[in-house]
């Protein structure tokens, strides 16, 4: 038994160079002249996690994909920002209002992306940006809600996210949000599906490693919404969660479900201190 363990270790050492090859890089992300914090210390609540620092998913992508995010003219996600700007100003619904009627310019929403999901006192619930957008649409505008992870919603989130670009993620996890956060933490560490993998199995225990052609990142959401070259569209946080849970051969949760809202708060808090960098570009 002992002998076997030793041989196994020897075999691991032989494989070591491949691990270095797959490590996250040390490049610096500068977008339109603004330097982003893409690596920083663990937030206090993560002290027990077996990792040295938190890192943006940008570090795990190829140089070519990284470059697309460094220039707004090359970033396909910016096209959706323009589309959302049109929607921002268009009057919809029975109240005859647009977003601009209440909020003026989108820059009035600076700081929103950095602090959401966030406890809403009146509603008595933790709200994601998408939930807040739909609450404005139905209650203030008398308009139809957007489908939770539709292109229109993703675009509106991109416009709102852009207003906080470069600000540190800073979601609150205490007070009335604590219960939701704990539920999210439990989901993060639950090993779902026939493959019995949790978010942590891939993004905490194995970030930096390759799973087939994919270079595993920490699964941070500071870059969302994300334009993915693979599906050529803007992807929402819940859309990504759904794909990752499906890949464990599990029955997924739905975008906008209480489970994914709680998970979003928890995963966002694992990025507290990283810059908001959406809309980002990934493969």
């Amino acid at each position: 038994m002992k002998f076997k363990a030793l041989t196994a270790i020897a075999a691991l050492m032989v494989a070591a160079p491949a691990l270095t090859f797959a490590d996250p890089d040390d490049d610096t992300l500068v977008i339109e002249g603004q330097e982003m914090v893409t690596k920083t210390d663990l937030p206090a609540h993560m002290e027990d996690a077996n990792m040295d620092m938190i890192m943006s998913g940008w570090h795990f992508r190829s140089d070519e994909t990284q470059a697309l995010q460094m220039d707004d003219f090359d970033n396909p996600g910016m096209i959706f920002v323009d589309q959302a700007l049109d929607n921002w100003e268009s009057v919809e619904g029975s109240a005859g209002k647009s977003c601009a009627s209440c909020h003026e310019g989108p820059e009035s929403l600076a700081g929103v992306r950095a602090t959401y999901p966030k406890w809403n006192e009146d509603a008595g619930e933790v709200r994601t940006i998408a939930m807040q957008v739909n609450s404005c649409r139905t209650e203030n505008m008398g308009a139809e809600p957007y489908k939770y992870d539709s292109t229109q919603m993703a675009a509106m989130e991109a416009l709102i996210t852009l207003q906080s670009r470069g600000m540190p993620v800073d979601v609150a996890i205490d007070g009335p949000a604590a219960e939701t956060w704990e539920k999210g933490q439990e989901i993060y560490y639950t090993r779902y599906g026939q493959l019995e993998l949790s978010c942590a199995s891939c993004h905490e225990e194995n970030y930096g490693n390759m799973i087939r052609a994919d270079h595993l990142s920490q699964g941070q959401i500071n870059g969302f919404p994300t334009y993915r070259l693979k599906n050529a569209k803007l992807n929402t946080v819940h859309g990504r969660f759904k794909g990752c849970v499906r890949d464990t051969r599990a029955e997924t949760f739905s975008p906008g479900s209480p489970e994914f809202v709680a998970l979003e708060l928890y995963v966002a808090s694992r990025g507290n201190g990283l810059s908001v960098e959406g809309p980002s570009v990934r493969n």
Partner: peptide, 14 residues
Amino acid sequence: GFVRPGNAYTGKAA
């Protein structure tokens, strides 16, 4: 013994 086992990679329940 699985938690939320799915129907292969469809995302639907087993």
